[in-house]
Design a protein around this nucleic acid. Sequence first.
DNA 1: GTCGGTGCAAAACGTTTGCACCTCG
DNA 2: CGAGGTGCAAACGTTTTGCACCGAC
Lengths: 158, 158
Amino acid sequence: MTPGSSSIVPTRPPLGCAAVMMEVLRGELRERELPFTQQREAIARELFESTRHLSADDVEALLFERGHHIGKATVYRTLALLVELGLATEHDFDEGFRRYQMKVGAAQYDHMICTVCGGVTQFRQEELETVLGGVLRDAGFEPLTRQIKIFGTCNDCS
Amino acid sequence: MTPGSSSIVPTRPPLGCAAVMMEVLRGELRERELPFTQQREAIARELFESTRHLSADDVEALLFERGHHIGKATVYRTLALLVELGLATEHDFDEGFRRYQMKVGAAQYDHMICTVCGGVTQFRQEELETVLGGVLRDAGFEPLTRQIKIFGTCNDCS
DNA sequence: GTCGGTGCAAAACGTTTGCACCTCG
DNA sequence: CGAGGTGCAAACGTTTTGCACCGAC
């Protein structure tokens, strides 16, 4: 194994965590005395059961396939809510629209985006965290969120 | 000095490089047999003489202040041209629009964006390059461009 | 019953484009 | 003179919003 690669951890969430996430959502909503509507449940389910990064359009289309007719406005409002509750992350891969993904715990993932096939590979490297942490500490900068996006050609496309 | 901070280089471009950049632009245009118009000169000058990241609106407003009346379309077209010629870089700081900055050489800068004051601090850390290079090599990913954006609170605002 | 959510359509926003006219070379 | 650039306004695509109605609790 190439030195350094050992700390690259797989980024696929554990299967079957959708149910757990849904319970977390229910709890967060109850805590804030916000209603747990059918629409919120359906939209969250799409996100929690997918391993891909979904756009608002993707979510709407998936819902439509399953017979749900939920307006785009509600999709956008719910996705924003999930981000605010810390259950989803928002990504911009320079496509002209945003994508969303379920967020498990506090983990931050970085992304390699293939400009040929459009595929997105997540990664996480502890050494990167360490070096970056040092830079921020030196600058006296208190990090909140971060984005690392590498655009280029993936292994399969080159 | 804190260990690791020694390789953080200042990212302010040398003063007086606007004239040089303008000559480079003139050369690039001539090479491609594209006209060096008054509008292109004026727009490029705004970018080359500013140390800030400018939006298309910023550029238009600055031009207007100096008595130039140049349409937004031309501003957008010229900024895109400068990016294509490698004389400017495009940034998205999650404000809903893009910002542009002159690009000196091939250097890639990373950014810390303060969510309180909106200030953007550029940085470059060689160790980060090394670690990131290793991750990409392991993944067989051929990098083209990259973005590292840290959102949080800057030293002055915390 | 009340507060908030939803759906629709319209608006908002930054950005791009079509087209007649102009300008650089 | 000709290729390309410019300006205007209209189009574009995503996201947000106003408002009447509906549903959760």
